[in-house]
């Protein structure tokens, strides 16, 4: 019997704005990811990979189609709750002014997590070490981090929230090879612990993807190994 996917997307359709000629960006995409999987999505620039991740996170106004999380339709899950469980990390790390600690704890300042206990400093330091930022102090000013460090801090923050599906948009685009390798290992560990990961990436194959897909002409296709 087939394992039920954590996240299932069917007939996802999105037409770009009229100002650029209403191009069909997503043309009835079907996609599923299961627990423990790391799915890589590649494809030419402008093919709509970021758009697809946004649609999966319910962050794309006007996208149509059907989404389900562990068999429950998106219609029955509030948008905020959905994004707590299916979390997109956008390519541009957007940190708030404040310390590294304040940035890591930002999700626990939101109403959505009002009841949850925020992680303790030990867990924060561990999360930083997981993304090769072990030498960064929690008191450090977040605005003084490099682009690559900010990207990893944002990744650490998202992983700390323990989503069920992690959607990563170019997670290693701004990273050197060593940091990228460490981030990839952390991502693989997240999947091994039962999470589902979808990565949009351009970089060479890093050996951590369990499946690779290609988005072109508005549709996904399997890439053979």
């Amino acid at each position: 019997m087939a394992v039920e996917p954590v996240l299932l997307a069917e007939e996802i359709r999105f037409v770009g704005p009229a100002s650029i000629g209403s191009p069909v960006v997503l043309d009835g995409v079907r996609f599923a990811v299961g627990a423990g999987e790391v799915v890589d999505i590649g494809g030419p620039s402008g093919a709509g990979k970021t758009t697809l991740l946004r649609a999966l996170a319910r962050l794309l106004p006007d996208a149509t189609g059907h989404l389900a999380l562990r068999g429950v339709s998106a219609d029955e899950i509030a948008a905020g709750e959905w994004r707590r469980r299916v979390t997109l990390l956008p390519q541009k790390a957007a940190l708030r002014p404040g310390t590294v600690r304040e940035n890591l704890l930002l999700p626990w300042t939101l109403k959505l997590r009002g009841e949850e206990m925020p992680p303790a400093d030990g867990a924060l330091a561990e999360a930083l070490a997981d993304v090769a930022l072990g030498d960064i102090a929690l008191e450090r000013d977040g605005s003084r981090l490099s682009v690559g460090q900010a990207a990893r801090l944002a990744l650490a923050r998202t992983v700390l929230t323990r989503p069920e599906v992690l959607l990563l948009d170019e997670p290693d685009a701004a990273l050197d090879d060593d940091s990228a390798a460490q981030v990839a290992q952390m991502t693989a560990r997240f999947a091994a612990e039962g999470g589902a990961v979808v990565r949009v990436r351009h970089q060479r194959i890093d050996g951590h993807a369990t499946r690779r897909l290609r988005l072109s002409d508005g549709n996904l296709s399997e890439v053979s190994a």
Partner: peptide
Amino acid sequence: ADEVLALVALGAT
């Protein structure tokens, strides 16, 4: 806009 997207993605209202 980037920061707002990141916040909403984390579940911000």
